[in-house]
Amino acid sequence: MAATSAWLSPPSRTELIENLVSGVDRYNPSNVGILEDYLYHQIRSEEYDCLANLAILKLYQFNPDLFNPDVVINILLKALTAEPFPDFNLCISLLDDRPTNATLDEPDPLPTLLPLLTNLYNLLHQCRFSAFWTLYRSDELEVVRENYTVECAGFEDAIREVAARSVKATFTRISGERLGSYVDLSGSKLEAWVAKQRWALDPSTGVVSIPPNPDNQIESVVIQEHIKLPQLGKVISHSVQAK
């Protein structure tokens, strides 16, 4: 279960949070503060705990009075960086449409931001990384950058990791220019990033080599059927009984 163990139970999760995620205490509205604090801890420390964040959205779903749009936006930004896992959609699934909340002091930013965040997500999901950065850097997204991602430590690097996951599965070599457009880096910053990935940039050609991994090595195979003993149980037992 290697692919999901960190998602199911990240090392940063404390016992207190684990009890909230896995027990019936998750329904207790008075625990929302603990989970929200944990979210802000994730925001500051480049950590991520999807199930704990879903527990916040669950409490919001059942207790609309608790609803805090800033928290929701931060959860969605965190979930963006989990692609290709479907975390973003799992969060959206819990966001019941609410009648406009008049009790908030300030206007609810979510109705305007949600379509923008969804667009960002779709670009990532379609592996249109250059387009993602163009939209992300646009004026329209200024409010997201200045109010939210600026506080979210390592947000842009986490998005670069999303691109890196697709690139290293698909390419053995890729031009530095193209790669740069996927991760919104160039020059020495790109070189440093490539080095951090432990990929190799050939300075003379500007081509980046990506080391072999299970996804970028291909071979033609013929899949043979595998027959297990239990499948032959009846045939064998019959042949033993037959005189």
């Binding site: 698909t170 390419f171 053995t172 070599r173 890729i174 031009s175 081509v207 970028n216 090595q217 291909i218 071979e219 033609s220 195979v221 013929v222 899949i223 043979q224 059927e225």
Partner: peptide, 18 residues
């Protein structure tokens, strides 16, 4: 159907079921 891209060249390998 599996493939990999080496710069601009796509290499393809197909698995078949016996």
């Amino acid at each position: 159907l599996n493939f990999v891209i080496d710069q601009n060249m796509v290499h393809i390998a197909e698995s078949t079921v016996g």
